[in-house]
Simulated assay, not measured.
Amino acid sequence: MDGNIARDVTRNRVKHVAEGYTNAKGRAVAGLGGGFQFCRLSEEPLFRADGSIRPDVTFAQLAEFVWFAETGTGYTGPADSLLLGVHEGRAIYLLYNGILRDKSDLGGNVLNSRTLAVLDEALPSFDGPRVVYGARARFDKAKLARLRITFHQLPYELAVKTWF
C-alpha cells in the first residue's frame, strides 16, 4: 500500500464527508459536520519498555508529544522554548533536555525558584493557570497550588497520561 495513503486519500475523503462535496453528477452533497486532525506517528516510541524516555529523544519531539497529550491538538509552536504555548487559558511549559542550557539539579529540568523566574519571564503578563512538565519540583503541593501550577513529573506522569 502507498505509504502516503492516509495523507493523500483518506484525509480528502474524511474532509469531504465533514464539509460536503459535489458528486460526479454535479449535485452538491451536504457535509455531516465535525472535523478531524491528521497526525503523524514517530517511527519509534518515545518511551522504553521500562517507562523511561529514550535518551535520543529531542526537546522538539517531546514538546510535540506533551502538547498533544495536554491539548489533543497538533503542536505548531517553537522547538526551542520552554513555553510551548497557551491553550484554553492554560500556559504549558516543558523543562527537558537542558532547554535552559543547564541540566544541574538547581535548574534546567527542575522546577525551582530559578526556573520559576524563567517561566515568569517567558510570559510576563500571564496570570492564569500553568502546567509544567519536568524532572521534579522543589515546591510542595500547597505552594504549587498557590502558584496555580499543575506539575507533571517526567516521564512517569506523561506515560500514565497517555494510557487512556
Rank of each mutant, 00 (worst) to 15 (best):
N4S: 12
F65S: 05
L84D: 08
S81D: 14
T162R: 14
I149Y: 00
R136K: 15
Y96H: 05
V86M: 13
Y133W: 01
W67T: 02
A122M: 13
V17P: 06
H16M: 14
V131Q: 13
F126L: 10
T71S: 13
G108H: 09
V86T: 14
G26A: 02
V132D: 00
V132E: 12
K141M: 10
F139S: 08
W163K: 05
K15G: 02
V131S: 05
K143W: 08
H87R: 12
D8A: 09
A159P: 03
G35N: 09
E64F: 11
E43Q: 08
K161N: 04
V66W: 03
L83F: 12
E64I: 05
L83P: 07
E88Y: 06
V131T: 10
K161I: 03
L158W: 10
T22Y: 05
R130K: 09
D120M: 07
G26D: 00
A69E: 15
S104Q: 13
K141T: 06
L32Y: 07
E43Y: 11
N4W: 12
L116M: 11
R27T: 01
L62D: 04
Y133P: 02
V66K: 10
P55M: 09
D50K: 07
T73P: 01
G31W: 00
A79E: 04
I149H: 02
T58C: 02
F47V: 07
E88S: 13
F151I: 02
V17K: 03
F65M: 11
W163D: 04
A145I: 07
G33Q: 11
A49C: 10
R11T: 12
Y156V: 03
R27I: 02
F126P: 10
L84P: 08
N4F: 15
N109G: 04
L100N: 11
L41T: 11
H152N: 11
E64L: 09
W67I: 04
Y93R: 00
S52M: 13
V14K: 03
T76D: 11
H152G: 00
I53W: 10
S104T: 15
V9G: 08
I5C: 02
I53K: 08
A137V: 15
M1Q: 13
F126Q: 10
Q37N: 15
G134D: 07
D120R: 12
V131F: 07
F59Q: 01
P45I: 08
